[in-house]
Design a protein around this nucleic acid. Structure first.
Lengths: 334, 334
DNA sequence: CTGAAAGCGCTTACAG
DNA sequence: CTGAAAGCGCTTACAG
């Protein structure tokens, strides 16, 4: 970074004062067009590079947004992170990434570090644990903070919560399987007691209650290996189950893998629906029916809201639910 | 960020000068233990938050590393990114993420933005295209830059290149399938002409040449859908192919999916080997044999090297190859 | 529309 | 081991 030209060098070269250069840098419309062009040319000539640390120090605002994710290796979150980052880049903001890896201690450490860097906003899909401490750190920093997908506590106006309408997704999945003729539908995966699990499940439960059918619930890790492992158990202990709604696509893909192994015909013997509609759903065998949370729109809308909040101070609604959609494929029948 | 206490407030509270506070902040050992403790206590008392923008401005060095990835949605890169970020965090560095999404124009824009932020180093798995321009921008910034997995050009001492030993991986895969009794082994996927494809393929080609067998090469996208689509063609046009080495696991998982659909028994009729050993390999049906690039070690080593370079100026070797290992699973036979 | 001056919160020599 | 002073490269009022 040393020896980089400064706005003073640019000013000298363009024959204006450094204030004028600064105004050009900020896109201030009060600068005459010809001056603006001359300044831009001078910058190009001498290879000027904007020093954002100086700007941040003086202006109390950075163009950095902190993205804190509980499990970046889950493709659902990866897709969100990638799209979110690109959307911010389009708006001139950079993304500082932190994968808390379901470790609340690492999470608080990373958040503190991001605050020191002066991020203008946080988007966090939190790891559970140490909720009060984490919220206290975020609150003390007074940084606009949006919670996505998961929430660290009851509705809190300081930390608005943005998530897909999981409950409705659960309903859609259950209704679809009923319409496909399933007599007994199970719900598989998702850690018990977690809000996300509860929501996805309650859509399912309400449909079964309306149909007066007994639910079958097997909670657990949201992983392929869990889905794979539980399939045999499901077949053995609940032989009448002919439809299964999985907590997420990873679980569902595990089920599909086990069905291949066990010779169970998916889509006829057993109809399977996943959740999240990750890319893999299209290429599994059979292709997986899934509840899409429309991550591209969700990422874009999250980016817009945190940017508006960071720039104008406009706080988003405390709770917002984005629409979900059932994508029908062969795993749930024709 | 406004109204945060500064080192002056800390100094006042602790009854020392602000220089002393700064020395404590930097962990300078010349400060007396009791003073150090008093200063730390004062910081905690008044809720002091370190302002890294100010430090960066004055010291010409930030604790920010830029990570530029060509395709963050590919699980192979995601795992690398997640582990790399966590390793940096352990060393007190933050990661600014950029997903260039195989778009060289976006890539140069994002790199320029990261330079403005004063990153102390770059780790880049580049998107192809505009190579000269990209290297010129990086070179002009004089920022330590490590290329990983892919390289933007011929060996260049300004941008050392760190990658798994793909060629050896290709050899291991081919030798393994030969040992398993395969008579005709095909290579599937990977864009033609790309260095990574060439390397993975050349290990395969050299083994076939030694065995005096004709190769079968079908290059193309490194995706599940390509693997899935090409499987039918492979069976129809090359019915004697009894083993296939895939450019990466995504292609291989596509092949497995197609085999389920076509009723081809993987591991007997057709033996399949992937590349990268992503997590999904363990849970596919059948579990997928794959060449592991040992991403955890690779990420850790990459983090170490860029940190040493950024901090001490020690430039890593121009080219380094990390060891690979064949992980044998059911897809290639017992 | 442009210029001169002050100041953001640190680190860096340097003196003691 | 500690203190006083200068300065990093910007932005921000303010005057003209």
């Amino acid at each position: 970074m040393k020896d980089r030209p400064t706005i003073l060098d640019v000013a000298k070269r363009a024959g204006v004062s450094k204030s004028t250069v600064s105004l050009v840098l900020q896109g201030n419309p009060s600068v005459k067009e010809t001056t603006r062009v001359a300044v831009r040319q001078a910058m190009a000539d001498i290879g000027y590079v904007y020093n954002r640390s100086a700007a941040t120090l003086r202006s109390y605002s950075s163009d950095l947004i902190g993205l804190v994710i509980n499990d970046l290796r889950n493709p659902f979150f990866t897709e969100f992170a990638a799209l979110f980052q690109m959307e911010l880049a389009r708006n001139g903001f950079a993304t500082v990434l932190a994968n808390s890896d379901e470790d609340p201690q690492m999470q608080t450490q990373m958040i503190s570090s991001l605050i020191e860097h002066g991020v203008s906003g946080f988007v966090i899909s939190p790891s559970y644990g140490r909720e009060a401490e984490t919220l206290a750190i975020l609150g003390a920093s007074n940084t606009p903070t949006l919670q996505v997908f998961r929430s660290l506590g009851p509705s809190d106006q300081r930390f608005p919560f943005l998530a897909p309408d999981y409950l409705h997704g659960g309903r859609l999945a259950a209704e679809h399987l009923r319409e496909q003729g399933c007599k007994r539908v199970a719900f598989l995966g998702g850690l018990e007691g977690r809000a996300v699990t509860e929501e996805r499940m309650s859509g399912y439960l309400s449909v079964l209650a309306e149909a007066e059918v007994e639910p079958v619930v097997l909670t657990g890790q949201a992983t392929r290996s869990f889905g794979k492992a539980m399939t045999a158990r499901l077949r053995a202990e609940y032989p009448d189950v002919d439809g299964v709604i999985c907590f997420n696509d990873l679980v569902a893909l595990g089920v599909l893998s086990a069905c291949s192994e066990l010779g169970v015909s998916v889509g006829t013997d057993l109809r399977v629906v996943g959740f999240d509609d990750i890319e893999d759903c299209q290429d599994s065998f059979p292709p997986l029916t899934s509840v899409s949370c429309n991550i591209p729109d969700f990422a874009k809308s999250t980016a817009e809201q945190i940017l508006i909040w960071a720039k104008d101070g406009t706080v988003p609604p405390v709770i917002a639910r984005s629409p979900v959609e059932l994508i029908k494929r062969a795993s749930s029948g024709q």
